[in-house]
Amino acid sequence: MKQTKLSLWLASLCMVLFLFACAGSEGPEESGEKKEEPKAEESSGPVTKIDPATAATITGKVSFDGEKPKAIQIRMDAEAACATLHKEPVYAEQIALNDNKTLQYVFVYVKEGLGDKTFETSKEPVVLDQKGCIYHPHMIGLQTGQPLKVLNSDPTTHNIHPQPQNNREWNKSMSPGVSPLEQTFAREEVMIPVKCNVHPWMKSYIGVVKHPFFAITGKEGTFEIKGLPPGEYTIEAWHEKLGTTTQKVTVGAKETKTVDFTLKAGGAVS
C-alpha cells in the first residue's frame, strides 16, 4: 500500500516537472525570427510629413569638462574565444573621450516640443553587432516600432538581454553563425541598457523615441538632427555615466541652429 502511494506521488512529481519543462524551455535558438512587441503606442493624429521646404536643423557638439577619466581595461582572459580576437588591450566605452575633449556616445534627442505630432516610422533596421565580444556600436537609437537587427559575428555564444523599464524585457541566446535576430520596441524609452550575461563586460544602450529627431555623437563629438518642423524644442543630451542635460531652442523654417552641451563628472552643465 505504502509503495503504491509512493509510486503515485513520484508519478505526480514527474508530471509536474514535465509540465514545467514544456512551459519553460525556449529551445536552443530564438534568432532568425521576427518577434513583434506589443502594439506600439497609439498615435493621436495623422502622420506628419516632413516638409523639405521648411525643415530646420539642429547641430552641435557635446564637450567634457574635467580630468580625463582613467580608461578601464576589459579583462577577457577568462574567455579564450574573446581574448584571441584582440591583439591590443580593449577598453570600456562608458566614457569615450575624443582627442578634442568631446564625448562619443551621447544620445541627443528632441525631448519636448513636438506635441502630439506623429511621424512615419523608419522600416530600415538598425544593426547591433556582437563582434570581438563587444557591442558595435556601443549605443544606438530607434524609433518605436523600428526594427532592431542583432548579429553575432563572434565565434562564441552570446545572449542579448535588454533591460527596459517601459517595454517588454527579453533575453535571447545567439550561438556562432546564427541568423540575425529582429525585434522592435513598442514604447518610448531613454535609455534601455543592453547586456550580455555570458560576457558581463558587454554593455550597450538603446534609445527609443517616437520620432526620428535624435542623433548619437561620434568621434568628433558632434551631432546633427535634421528635418525638424519649425518650432520651440527642448533638446536633451543623455550620457550613461555623466547624466543628462537639456537646452531649449527655437528654430524657424529652413533655419540651422547650433546647440552645444558640456557634461562633467558628477553632474551635467549646459
Binding site: N159, H161, N171, S173, N197, V198
Partner: peptide, 9 residues
Amino acid sequence: AGLAVPDWP
C-alpha cells in the same frame, strides 16, 4: 551570471 542561460529547465 544569473541570466547567462536564458531558458529553463
